[in-house]
Amino acid sequence: MKLLHKGIDFYMNHKKLLIMMLLVPIMAVPFFGFSPYMMRMITLSGIYIILALSLNLLTGFTGQVSLGHAAFYGIGAYTSALLAIRFDLSFVYTAIAGGLVAGFFGLLLGLPTLRLNGTYLSIVTLGFCEITRLVALNWMDLTRGPMGLTGIPLPKVFSWVIDKDAEFFYLILILIILTWVAINNLIKSRTGRALISIREDELAAEAMGINILKYKLIAFTTAAFFAGIAGSFYAHYASFIDPQSFTFDESIQILSMVILGGMGSNLGAAFGAVILVSIPEMLRGLQEYRMLMYGAVLVIMMLMRPQGLLGNVKLGDILNKKPVNEEEVSQDA
Protein backbone atom coordinates (compact mmCIF):
# COMPACT_ATOMS: atom_id res chain seq x y z
CA MET A 1 0.00 0.00 0.00
CA LYS A 2 2.72 2.42 0.98
CA LEU A 3 4.65 1.61 -2.15
CA LEU A 4 1.58 2.38 -4.21
CA HIS A 5 1.26 5.75 -2.52
CA LYS A 6 4.88 6.53 -3.19
CA GLY A 7 4.46 5.50 -6.80
CA ILE A 8 1.43 7.74 -7.21
CA ASP A 9 3.17 10.67 -5.57
CA PHE A 10 6.15 10.15 -7.82
CA TYR A 11 3.87 10.07 -10.84
CA MET A 12 2.16 13.25 -9.74
CA ASN A 13 5.38 15.12 -9.04
CA HIS A 14 7.19 14.09 -12.18
CA LYS A 15 4.30 13.85 -14.58
CA LYS A 16 5.89 15.92 -17.32
CA LEU A 17 9.22 14.14 -17.12
CA LEU A 18 7.57 10.72 -17.22
CA ILE A 19 5.50 11.58 -20.26
CA MET A 20 8.62 12.87 -22.01
CA MET A 21 10.47 9.68 -21.14
CA LEU A 22 7.59 7.67 -22.50
CA LEU A 23 7.93 9.53 -25.76
CA VAL A 24 11.39 8.09 -26.47
CA PRO A 25 10.35 4.43 -26.86
CA ILE A 26 7.20 5.60 -28.65
CA MET A 27 9.31 7.43 -31.23
CA ALA A 28 11.19 4.21 -31.80
CA VAL A 29 8.09 2.07 -32.40
CA PRO A 30 8.61 1.64 -36.16
CA PHE A 31 12.07 0.14 -35.45
CA PHE A 32 10.75 -2.63 -33.20
CA GLY A 33 9.93 -4.77 -36.20
CA PHE A 34 6.23 -5.03 -35.47
CA SER A 35 4.09 -6.88 -37.99
CA PRO A 36 1.97 -4.76 -40.37
CA TYR A 37 -1.05 -5.94 -38.39
CA MET A 38 0.50 -4.68 -35.16
CA MET A 39 1.38 -1.36 -36.78
CA ARG A 40 -2.18 -1.05 -37.93
CA MET A 41 -3.45 -1.56 -34.38
CA ILE A 42 -1.00 1.01 -33.07
CA THR A 43 -2.01 3.56 -35.70
CA LEU A 44 -5.67 2.86 -34.98
CA SER A 45 -5.02 3.43 -31.26
CA GLY A 46 -3.49 6.74 -32.28
CA ILE A 47 -6.68 7.81 -34.04
CA TYR A 48 -8.70 6.89 -30.96
CA ILE A 49 -6.30 8.77 -28.71
CA ILE A 50 -7.11 11.96 -30.64
CA LEU A 51 -10.82 11.20 -30.50
CA ALA A 52 -10.67 10.49 -26.76
CA LEU A 53 -8.58 13.60 -26.07
CA SER A 54 -11.02 15.78 -27.94
CA LEU A 55 -14.11 14.27 -26.32
CA ASN A 56 -12.39 14.60 -22.97
CA LEU A 57 -12.17 18.34 -23.47
CA LEU A 58 -15.92 18.48 -23.90
CA THR A 59 -17.04 15.78 -21.50
CA GLY A 60 -14.22 15.41 -18.99
CA PHE A 61 -13.28 19.05 -18.57
CA THR A 62 -16.42 20.96 -19.51
CA GLY A 63 -18.87 18.36 -18.22
CA GLN A 64 -21.03 18.16 -21.36
CA VAL A 65 -21.63 14.46 -22.01
CA SER A 66 -21.73 13.99 -25.76
CA LEU A 67 -23.14 10.83 -27.32
CA GLY A 68 -22.46 12.11 -30.81
CA HIS A 69 -18.72 12.50 -31.10
CA ALA A 70 -18.57 10.02 -33.97
CA ALA A 71 -20.55 12.51 -36.07
CA PHE A 72 -17.65 14.98 -36.02
CA TYR A 73 -15.23 12.18 -36.74
CA GLY A 74 -17.39 11.26 -39.73
CA ILE A 75 -17.85 14.84 -40.93
CA GLY A 76 -14.08 15.32 -40.87
CA ALA A 77 -13.56 12.05 -42.72
CA TYR A 78 -16.10 12.80 -45.45
CA THR A 79 -14.91 16.38 -45.90
CA SER A 80 -11.29 15.37 -46.42
CA ALA A 81 -12.15 12.34 -48.52
CA LEU A 82 -14.23 14.44 -50.89
CA LEU A 83 -11.63 17.19 -51.09
CA ALA A 84 -8.88 14.67 -51.75
CA ILE A 85 -10.85 12.71 -54.34
CA ARG A 86 -12.25 15.67 -56.24
CA PHE A 87 -9.49 18.23 -55.92
CA ASP A 88 -6.49 16.07 -55.08
CA LEU A 89 -5.56 18.36 -52.18
CA SER A 90 -2.65 17.72 -49.85
CA PHE A 91 -3.37 16.20 -46.44
CA VAL A 92 -2.37 19.43 -44.72
CA TYR A 93 -5.34 21.17 -46.35
CA THR A 94 -7.82 18.32 -46.20
CA ALA A 95 -7.11 17.81 -42.50
CA ILE A 96 -7.54 21.48 -41.68
CA ALA A 97 -10.70 21.62 -43.80
CA GLY A 98 -12.00 18.45 -42.12
CA GLY A 99 -11.35 19.99 -38.73
CA LEU A 100 -12.95 23.29 -39.64
CA VAL A 101 -16.11 21.79 -41.12
CA ALA A 102 -16.47 19.48 -38.12
CA GLY A 103 -15.82 22.46 -35.86
CA PHE A 104 -18.56 24.41 -37.61
CA PHE A 105 -21.03 21.61 -36.91
CA GLY A 106 -19.75 21.50 -33.35
CA LEU A 107 -20.62 25.15 -33.07
CA LEU A 108 -24.11 24.47 -34.41
CA LEU A 109 -24.64 21.59 -32.02
CA GLY A 110 -23.32 23.72 -29.19
CA LEU A 111 -25.95 26.42 -29.68
CA PRO A 112 -28.86 24.60 -28.03
CA THR A 113 -26.68 24.07 -24.96
CA LEU A 114 -27.80 27.48 -23.82
CA ARG A 115 -31.15 25.95 -23.00
CA LEU A 116 -30.28 22.32 -22.43
CA ASN A 117 -28.41 20.55 -19.74
CA GLY A 118 -27.33 17.15 -18.60
CA THR A 119 -29.35 14.28 -19.97
CA TYR A 120 -31.32 16.32 -22.52
CA LEU A 121 -28.17 17.73 -24.01
CA SER A 122 -26.72 14.22 -24.33
CA ILE A 123 -29.85 13.08 -26.12
CA VAL A 124 -29.62 15.99 -28.55
CA THR A 125 -26.02 15.05 -29.37
CA LEU A 126 -27.20 11.50 -29.98
CA GLY A 127 -29.95 12.76 -32.28
CA PHE A 128 -27.39 14.85 -34.11
CA CYS A 129 -25.16 11.80 -34.60
CA GLU A 130 -28.04 9.77 -36.03
CA ILE A 131 -29.19 12.55 -38.34
CA THR A 132 -25.62 12.97 -39.62
CA ARG A 133 -25.37 9.25 -40.29
CA LEU A 134 -28.73 9.18 -42.08
CA VAL A 135 -27.73 12.13 -44.23
CA ALA A 136 -24.48 10.36 -45.15
CA LEU A 137 -26.54 7.29 -45.97
CA ASN A 138 -29.08 9.07 -48.15
CA TRP A 139 -27.25 11.91 -49.85
CA MET A 140 -26.21 9.68 -52.73
CA ASP A 141 -24.82 12.43 -54.97
CA LEU A 142 -22.30 13.52 -52.41
CA THR A 143 -21.51 10.52 -50.25
CA ARG A 144 -22.53 7.61 -52.47
CA GLY A 145 -24.67 6.46 -49.53
CA PRO A 146 -24.15 2.94 -48.21
CA MET A 147 -21.57 2.20 -50.93
CA GLY A 148 -19.24 4.64 -49.25
CA LEU A 149 -16.36 6.56 -50.74
CA THR A 150 -13.60 4.45 -52.23
CA GLY A 151 -10.20 5.27 -53.60
CA ILE A 152 -9.37 8.04 -51.18
CA PRO A 153 -5.80 8.98 -52.12
CA LEU A 154 -2.85 8.46 -49.79
CA PRO A 155 -2.10 11.48 -47.66
CA LYS A 156 0.38 13.88 -49.13
CA VAL A 157 2.22 16.31 -46.94
CA PHE A 158 2.97 18.83 -49.66
CA SER A 159 4.89 16.70 -52.16
CA TRP A 160 5.73 13.84 -49.83
CA VAL A 161 3.35 10.92 -50.25
CA ILE A 162 2.80 8.92 -47.12
CA ASP A 163 2.48 5.24 -47.90
CA LYS A 164 4.60 3.26 -45.44
CA ASP A 165 3.44 2.03 -42.03
CA ALA A 166 6.24 3.95 -40.34
CA GLU A 167 5.25 7.16 -42.11
CA PHE A 168 1.64 6.77 -41.11
CA PHE A 169 2.81 6.15 -37.59
CA TYR A 170 4.82 9.36 -37.44
CA LEU A 171 2.01 11.32 -39.03
CA ILE A 172 -0.49 10.19 -36.42
CA LEU A 173 2.10 10.74 -33.69
CA ILE A 174 2.55 14.33 -34.81
CA LEU A 175 -1.21 14.82 -34.86
CA ILE A 176 -1.49 13.35 -31.36
CA ILE A 177 1.23 15.62 -30.03
CA LEU A 178 -0.36 18.68 -31.64
CA THR A 179 -3.76 17.78 -30.22
CA TRP A 180 -2.32 17.00 -26.83
CA VAL A 181 -0.31 20.19 -26.57
CA ALA A 182 -3.18 22.33 -27.83
CA ILE A 183 -5.73 20.82 -25.45
CA ASN A 184 -3.30 20.80 -22.56
CA ASN A 185 -2.41 24.45 -23.11
CA LEU A 186 -6.04 25.32 -23.43
CA ILE A 187 -6.94 23.58 -20.19
CA LYS A 188 -4.18 25.21 -18.20
CA SER A 189 -5.28 28.74 -18.92
CA ARG A 190 -7.97 31.30 -18.31
CA THR A 191 -10.15 29.59 -20.92
CA GLY A 192 -9.57 26.14 -19.44
CA ARG A 193 -10.43 27.26 -15.94
CA ALA A 194 -13.65 28.74 -17.27
CA LEU A 195 -14.49 25.39 -18.91
CA ILE A 196 -13.79 23.43 -15.76
CA SER A 197 -15.79 25.86 -13.65
CA ILE A 198 -18.79 25.21 -15.92
CA ARG A 199 -18.46 21.50 -15.21
CA GLU A 200 -18.14 22.14 -11.51
CA ASP A 201 -21.04 24.55 -11.02
CA GLU A 202 -22.56 26.27 -13.99
CA LEU A 203 -24.54 28.75 -11.97
CA ALA A 204 -21.61 29.81 -9.83
CA ALA A 205 -19.47 30.10 -12.95
CA GLU A 206 -22.00 32.42 -14.50
CA ALA A 207 -22.14 34.43 -11.30
CA MET A 208 -18.37 34.80 -11.45
CA GLY A 209 -18.63 36.47 -14.83
CA ILE A 210 -18.19 33.54 -17.19
CA ASN A 211 -20.25 33.69 -20.36
CA ILE A 212 -21.56 30.13 -20.29
CA LEU A 213 -22.71 29.97 -23.89
CA LYS A 214 -19.43 31.31 -25.23
CA TYR A 215 -17.33 28.80 -23.33
CA LYS A 216 -19.56 25.86 -24.09
CA LEU A 217 -19.33 26.79 -27.76
CA ILE A 218 -15.55 26.94 -27.44
CA ALA A 219 -15.58 23.44 -25.96
CA PHE A 220 -17.92 22.02 -28.60
CA THR A 221 -16.10 23.64 -31.49
CA THR A 222 -12.61 22.70 -30.34
CA ALA A 223 -13.60 19.13 -29.54
CA ALA A 224 -15.29 18.77 -32.92
CA PHE A 225 -12.30 20.32 -34.69
CA PHE A 226 -9.87 17.72 -33.38
CA ALA A 227 -12.32 14.87 -33.95
CA GLY A 228 -12.59 16.12 -37.53
CA ILE A 229 -8.83 15.94 -37.90
CA ALA A 230 -8.86 12.37 -36.59
CA GLY A 231 -11.55 11.60 -39.17
CA SER A 232 -9.46 13.16 -41.87
CA PHE A 233 -6.50 10.96 -41.02
CA TYR A 234 -8.72 7.90 -40.88
CA ALA A 235 -10.18 8.59 -44.32
CA HIS A 236 -6.75 8.79 -45.94
CA TYR A 237 -5.39 5.90 -43.93
CA ALA A 238 -8.25 3.49 -44.62
CA SER A 239 -8.78 4.82 -48.19
CA PHE A 240 -12.44 3.79 -47.81
CA ILE A 241 -15.19 5.24 -45.62
CA ASP A 242 -18.89 4.55 -45.30
CA PRO A 243 -21.59 5.62 -42.85
CA GLN A 244 -21.13 2.39 -40.87
CA SER A 245 -17.86 3.73 -39.43
CA PHE A 246 -19.51 6.68 -37.72
CA THR A 247 -22.45 5.27 -35.82
CA PHE A 248 -23.77 5.66 -32.31
CA ASP A 249 -21.73 2.59 -31.34
CA GLU A 250 -18.62 4.47 -32.39
CA SER A 251 -19.62 7.43 -30.21
CA ILE A 252 -20.09 5.06 -27.31
CA GLN A 253 -16.66 3.54 -27.85
CA ILE A 254 -15.05 6.96 -27.67
CA LEU A 255 -17.07 7.85 -24.60
CA SER A 256 -16.11 4.55 -22.95
CA MET A 257 -12.44 5.37 -23.48
CA VAL A 258 -12.81 8.73 -21.79
CA ILE A 259 -14.83 7.28 -18.96
CA LEU A 260 -12.51 4.33 -18.40
CA GLY A 261 -9.32 6.36 -18.58
CA GLY A 262 -10.45 9.31 -16.64
CA MET A 263 -12.70 12.28 -17.07
CA GLY A 264 -10.60 15.40 -17.09
CA SER A 265 -7.22 13.72 -17.53
CA ASN A 266 -5.47 13.73 -20.90
CA LEU A 267 -3.21 10.88 -19.95
CA GLY A 268 -6.24 8.97 -18.72
CA ALA A 269 -8.15 9.48 -21.96
CA ALA A 270 -5.16 8.34 -24.02
CA PHE A 271 -4.71 5.37 -21.72
CA GLY A 272 -8.41 4.48 -22.08
CA ALA A 273 -8.13 4.63 -25.86
CA VAL A 274 -5.12 2.32 -25.95
CA ILE A 275 -6.70 -0.17 -23.55
CA LEU A 276 -10.03 -0.35 -25.32
CA VAL A 277 -8.45 -0.74 -28.76
CA SER A 278 -5.82 -3.26 -27.73
CA ILE A 279 -7.60 -5.54 -25.25
CA PRO A 280 -10.17 -6.88 -27.72
CA GLU A 281 -7.32 -7.38 -30.20
CA MET A 282 -5.07 -9.16 -27.74
CA LEU A 283 -7.82 -11.50 -26.70
CA ARG A 284 -8.73 -12.55 -30.19
CA GLY A 285 -11.16 -15.16 -29.00
CA LEU A 286 -13.04 -12.45 -27.21
CA GLN A 287 -13.50 -10.30 -30.31
CA GLU A 288 -17.23 -10.92 -30.41
CA TYR A 289 -17.50 -9.87 -26.77
CA ARG A 290 -16.06 -6.47 -27.62
CA MET A 291 -19.27 -4.42 -27.46
CA LEU A 292 -20.40 -6.46 -24.47
CA MET A 293 -17.23 -5.28 -22.80
CA TYR A 294 -17.91 -1.63 -23.66
CA GLY A 295 -21.34 -1.96 -22.12
CA ALA A 296 -19.93 -3.48 -18.98
CA VAL A 297 -17.20 -0.83 -18.79
CA LEU A 298 -19.79 1.93 -18.77
CA VAL A 299 -21.92 0.37 -16.05
CA ILE A 300 -19.05 -0.68 -13.84
CA MET A 301 -17.22 2.63 -14.13
CA MET A 302 -20.37 4.58 -13.30
CA LEU A 303 -20.97 2.44 -10.25
CA MET A 304 -17.41 2.20 -8.99
CA ARG A 305 -15.39 5.14 -10.26
CA PRO A 306 -17.31 7.72 -12.26
CA GLN A 307 -14.16 9.83 -12.47
CA GLY A 308 -12.28 7.05 -14.31
CA LEU A 309 -9.04 5.26 -13.61
CA LEU A 310 -6.84 8.36 -13.86
CA GLY A 311 -9.58 10.92 -13.35
CA ASN A 312 -8.69 14.41 -12.30
CA VAL A 313 -8.79 13.54 -8.63
CA LYS A 314 -5.38 13.10 -7.10
CA LEU A 315 -5.05 9.35 -6.75
CA GLY A 316 -3.45 9.69 -3.35
CA ASP A 317 -6.48 11.60 -2.14
CA ILE A 318 -8.84 8.85 -3.13
CA LEU A 319 -6.80 6.13 -1.48
CA ASN A 320 -6.64 8.15 1.70
CA LYS A 321 -10.17 9.43 1.86
CA LYS A 322 -12.34 6.60 0.73
CA PRO A 323 -15.59 5.92 2.54
CA VAL A 324 -15.09 3.44 5.37
CA ASN A 325 -16.35 0.26 3.73
CA GLU A 326 -14.33 0.76 0.58
CA GLU A 327 -11.20 1.36 2.55
CA GLU A 328 -11.59 -2.04 4.19
CA VAL A 329 -11.81 -3.65 0.79
CA SER A 330 -8.66 -1.99 -0.47
CA GLN A 331 -6.73 -2.93 2.66
CA ASP A 332 -7.69 -6.54 2.27
CA ALA A 333 -6.32 -6.53 -1.23
Binding site: G192, R193, D201, G209
Partner: peptide, 28 residues
Protein backbone atom coordinates in the same frame (compact mmCIF):
# COMPACT_ATOMS: atom_id res chain seq x y z
CA UNK B 1 -21.05 27.27 -4.32
CA UNK B 2 -17.35 26.84 -4.84
CA UNK B 3 -15.88 24.75 -7.62
CA UNK B 4 -15.23 21.63 -5.56
CA UNK B 5 -12.66 19.93 -7.79
CA UNK B 6 -10.61 23.06 -8.36
CA UNK B 7 -7.91 24.19 -5.97
CA UNK B 8 -8.30 27.21 -3.73
CA UNK B 9 -5.98 29.15 -6.00
CA UNK B 10 -7.92 28.18 -9.12
CA UNK B 11 -11.19 29.17 -7.49
CA UNK B 12 -9.81 32.65 -6.86
CA UNK B 13 -8.41 32.78 -10.38
CA UNK B 14 -11.90 32.18 -11.74
CA UNK B 15 -12.82 35.32 -9.87
CA UNK B 16 -10.22 37.16 -11.93
CA UNK B 17 -11.88 36.01 -15.15
CA UNK B 18 -13.69 39.25 -15.91
CA UNK B 19 -10.55 41.27 -15.24
CA UNK B 20 -8.36 39.37 -17.68
CA UNK B 21 -8.50 39.11 -21.43
CA UNK B 22 -6.32 36.40 -22.95
CA UNK B 23 -8.23 34.37 -25.52
CA UNK B 24 -8.22 30.64 -26.24
CA UNK B 25 -5.68 31.22 -29.01
CA UNK B 26 -3.39 33.04 -26.59
CA UNK B 27 -3.62 29.98 -24.36
CA UNK B 28 -3.07 27.37 -27.05
Amino acid sequence: RLFPMMTALENVMIGLHTRTHSTMFDSI
